[in-house]
Design a protein around this nucleic acid. Structure first.
Lengths: 203, 203
DNA sequence: ACCTGAACACCGTTCAAGT
DNA sequence: ACCTGAACACCGTTCAAGT
């Protein structure tokens, strides 16, 4: 009881929003629901998140992004670091599947929370011989590949109930492949992409 | 006036929803707004879209997907067809930027509307020497890469107002690169990915 | 300074009633 | 068969009022 009476803060509001999203989905994350999670009235939130719901949701994206970036342990080897970035990103997003779509829709918020990653990754790539421009492109390509992949993954798992009901044999095969698990396909795509990027080193 | 009195149908409801989404965004696409677009009351829609808003939104995804798939002109050369698929997908999604996130969140609906594409593409890849499993994986990897890329693109353009306000020099550079246009980065990523996939032909 | 009650203009959806 | 008015249980947000 006394814990609920703890002082409200921007941080606590955003954390409560993430909790609601993880447990009940983005749709259910209303100002009223977040307030109730904190044992408070909806209107109280606006004192700590003046921008309203939009700012609160941006805060959730930044929180998840920061969590993941600060846990990275970069080595300076571009290919290793890029793969680790992609795998760790996917792992974090798997912990918060309902946040993936929010991140995908807010690239500027996501980039803003990723300075600690982007800098060292650029350096590693330029040290390896990539041009500045190709390093920029590569980071963007791998980020989006990872988000795109994980987003499909989050939705596919959610929709697995629909998998069985295909009479079209090819689609049934596609969905059976999805049901088998995504790890192999993720590694397949990641390696293909990194191979393709590495080939650009010669040119 | 008389046009507005035209008989309602599932097709007209879904088309009206797409119009509202294209013009005003997903958020504004309420049952009431779609009904108003058709000169009708919200409750009338339920007679043609019994599943309510969810079914209507699924219908919008299927409509956009079908539009794009039926316009494809496949050649049987896997690399050419895969590139064309990705480019055409991106082009269609650029015409409906507000629909991208909806598609990304409904992979099963999207696949269901893509039979005409998936079949020939598999054949072309198997003819070229890919295993069935690698063909499956490749299609999924390229689909998701394209969706992930286009989704970031749609959001980045929307958020371009935020580009200028970076004091962090690296992020400013990233956003300047984004502002320069995405075509080059798209082609860079697509070619890298296809190169990586082609390399799997040897293994 | 921080929290809140009441109110406003919206939602999706149900259901009984109209034609 | 098709359309609709009224109603229900929700939204985000404002604003004046409380402490």
């Amino acid at each position: 009881m006394t814990e609920d009476r703890e002082r409200l803060s921007r941080e606590r509001v955003v954390e409560a929003a993430l909790t609601v999203i993880d447990e009940s989905g983005v749709t259910r994350c209303s100002m009223r629901a977040v307030a109730s999670e904190l044992g408070v009235e909806a209107m109280s939130l606006y004192h700590h998140v003046p921008g309203g719901k939009a700012e609160m949701m941006d805060g959730v994206v930044a929180l998840v992004q920061t969590e993941f970036v600060s846990a990275l342990d970069l080595t300076g080897d571009w290919r290793h670091d890029m793969a680790m970035f992609s795998r760790a990103y996917r792992a974090t997003l798997s912990d918060h599947p309902n946040v993936v779509a929010m991140i995908a829709a807010r690239p500027s918020v996501a980039y803003r929370s990723s300075t600690a990653l982007v800098g060292p990754l650029f350096s590693a790539m330029e040290d390896a011989g990539f041009s500045r421009q190709d390093a920029l492109r590569a980071v963007r390509v791998v980020s989006r590949w990872t988000i795109g992949f994980t987003m499909g993954e989050a939705s596919a798992i959610e929709n697995s109930a629909a998998i069985a009901e295909f009479d079209e044999p090819l689609l049934a095969e596609v969905f059976a492949d999805i049901a088998r698990g995504e790890d192999e396909v993720f590694e397949f795509g990641l390696e293909a992409l990194l191979d393709g990027l590495e080939a650009r080193l010669g040119a």
